[in-house]
Design a protein around this nucleic acid. Structure first.
Lengths: 112, 112
DNA sequence: TCGTTATATAACTTCTTTATTATATAACGA
DNA sequence: TCGTTATATAATAAAGAAGTTATATAACGA
């Protein structure tokens, strides 16, 4: 779990998220992907490169076309990271709730 | 669900993810957060501003201190977006699997 | 009231990202 | 073989991000 940088960074761009959404509907070529955007083809090619670098999409070669599709593994990776955070968060809030409710105050207040 | 840009962008930085991880353990002040990093205090302050802007953390004022804690809502938001993507992805792969398995070939091959 | 602590803001530098245009490559169909 | 289609790459400009130092602000404790 070390390319979270690339993954989140790739997801930070709305064009790239839109591309992913489109790819979620099925495999698509570069030109098909570029069409709905007000952007040149090289720009889209670059976005695809970023997505591929982050492991979010996979490309094959089919004649002169380069159909892209989503890679499921990256999603899992994010999911896993989020899971960890959510879990810690839940624990944290439980604790806070407990404190607020005054249950088992233990040795709270011992903050240095 | 419109600040996904800010959210993912905030998560793309390893320092900020580390800060979140630290905050997952409980509320912490700016200096406490800065300590483990090889970075100046203003840099950390800036990171916190980014995280706050993305709605990932909440800050209160306590005298001269500004304790931060995680905001749970943003996590949910990401989760929701990921959920949508994962769902579409699953549907997509089911379809692909079906095709690959040769089940109900329907009108495949009709690719233009 | 004064020095200290906790934090924020500004000015600035450097590195990165994103988009553009122009051009290359490579397969396709005639 | 030739023009066309699909895509990539390079050069470059413009905008943004991240860190630094210097400085401001505001609450604290003496």
């Amino acid at each position: 779990m070390q390319n979270l940088d690339a993954t989140f960074s790739a997801l930070a761009d709305p064009t790239r998220r839109a591309i992913l959404a489109r790819l979620a509907l099925g495999e698509t070529t570069v030109m098909e992907l570029a069409e709905p955007f007000d952007m040149t083809q090289p720009a889209i090619s670059r976005h695809l490169k970023v997505l591929e670098g982050a492991g979010l999409i996979i490309r094959r070669i089919e004649g002169t076309k380069r159909p892209c599709r989503l890679a499921p593994s990256a999603i899992d990776e994010i999911d896993q990271w989020l899971g960890t955070l959510r879990q810690a968060l839940a624990k944290n809030y439980d604790r806070l709730d407990a404190v607020l409710a005054g249950m088992k105050p233990k040795k709270r207040k011992a903050r240095r």
